[in-house]
Amino acid sequence: MVVDDHPMWRAGVARDLEERGFEVVATASDAPSAVRIANAVRPDVVLMDLNLGVQTGVEATQQIVAARPETRVLVLSASGEHADVLEAVKAGASGYLLKSASAEELANAVNRTAEGAAVFTAGLAGLVLGEYRRMATEPAGREPAPELTGRETEVLRLVAKGMTSKHIATRLDISPRTVENHVQSTLRKLQLHNRVELARYAIEHGLDADQH
């Protein structure tokens, strides 16, 4: 399923994917219809643009994944949307690709996303590293911030320096599978923390509303 507010881009991406053997089950042009349609057609993978107007792709991602956690969301973003990409990943997206990627790279990324792998570019690894470090310096909240293990930090740094899983595996003398697992784990911890915080926020605000 392809979500983007630009009709020509949407059509172009859908065509590229179909030419490479994917079935595009639906398209959507804004966040509310993306959420509604995804719930109805249950796509394996949602390609999500972030810049969708009033409600963003981040909100759509969060709602789609909340409604059906097995849906994989791959963010396709323009460059320079760093903070939004990070939010989308925290909201449950399992990877991101720049819109400047080739049709070939897109097809590979969709395949990997469908298989359950995290599509990590060097840029995303840098963002995730930065987010863990930011959380570590924040005053302790009620939910303890997740931390990276030494190995996870090591792997993320190498991904951020542009190394492939294979290359990282050789350098650290572990299997490429283990490299992927470390990368996945850094995402899962971040997403879990985000869900717990959102739930707490909702409960606190719900209670507030009752009292007034």
Binding site: H82, G123, L124, A125, G126, G130, E131, R133, A160, K161
Partner: peptide
Amino acid sequence: MATPTISVAAPATP
């Protein structure tokens, strides 16, 4: 600084 041959990774915050 990013170009097609240069990738830049950084935190989301300044």
